[in-house]
Nucleic acid binder design. Structure first.
Length: 260
DNA sequence: ATGTCTCAGGGACTGAGA
């Protein structure tokens, strides 16, 4: 059984204790992190190694930053590491791709977009187009591919606490839905929707307005699997527990298990 | 009621980004 997880930690400097605590209890085989907000020279390699994980990372000052942890006892090295989205000139550290044994892992921190009127929204759509082109090519090379991270898109009305209010807003707009649909149509499935789930399951809640306490959230963090890998998925869940703790990230981890 | 959190710059608070 292989456990694969994703978590936007909103600063690994702040969240390192929570992350170490969480990996020690869940023991994921692979954990993709987003918004580490750390330059590579400041990355806490030693603490993560002590916790029993190998790690690769790609960061920058203040914003963005991604990392992938792999449990040492899995005995696998990351190879074919990619830190830039092919075809996109971009200094923002938002992607980290690596192969672990036969599994291709694409960790993504999709641009937020700010608002549908913003230039950043166009950047988000361009970014997703480049990602889709890359995934299409990668699926030919790797039957077992997982793309996971903070997509900053809630796919359906049931993934939004108040779909009427959010309709047309950034994170839940038509162009974003079209972009996500095109990505999925390359041959991916949303592992969360392979299974019966309770209603009102979200992965992100605004820090403001008591959003978590009221469960006013969105499901914007996803684990998407190639169809072949999706066939091996046995569960996908959102773990709200770390969001209840002291000094939480605004996101909760998402975890999927595979017969690998 | 955009009500929180994080970071950087610069040495208290403000602005950016989410």
């Amino acid at each position: 059984m292989t456990k694969i997880a994703t978590w936007n930690v909103n600063s690994l400097r702040v969240r390192l204790p929570q992350v170490l605590d969480w990996v020690s209890s869940y023991q994921p085989d692979i954990l993709a992190l987003q918004e580490t907000k750390l330059q590579d020279e400041n990355f806490p390699v030693a603490d993560i190694k002590t916790a029993g994980y190998e790690v690769i990372y790609s960061g920058q000052k203040t914003y963005n930053g991604v990392a992938i942890l792999c449990r040492v006892s899995a005995g696998i090295n990351a190879v074919d590491i990619v830190k830039d989205l092919p075809g996109l000139e971009d200094s923002q550290r938002r992607v980290l791709f690596a192969t672990y044994d036969k599994l291709r892992v694409l960790n993504v921190y999709v641009p937020n977009g700010e608002s549908v009127e913003s230039d950043k929204f166009q950047y988000k759509l361009t970014w997703l187009k480049k990602l889709t082109a890359y995934v299409k090519q990668q699926l030919k090379l790797y039957p077992h591919l997982v793309i996971l991270g903070d997509f900053n898109i809630a796919p359906e009305p049931r993934d939004v606490h108040d779909p009427e209010a959010w309709q047309g807003q950034v994170l839940f707009s038509e162009p974003e839905h079209a972009a996500l649909k095109t990505l999925l149509e390359t041959g991916l499935c949303d592992t969360f929707r392979l299974f019966d789930q309770q209603e009102k399951q979200y992965s992100w809640w605004d820090y403001r307005m008591l959003a978590f306490r009221r469960n006013r959230g969105l499901r914007i963090d996803h684990i998407l699997a190639s169809n072949a890998l999706g066939g091996l998925c046995t569960s996908c869940k959102i773990d709200k527990e770390p969001r209840r703790r002291e000094r939480p990230s605004d996101h909760a981890p998402v975890i999927a298990e595979f017969k690998l």
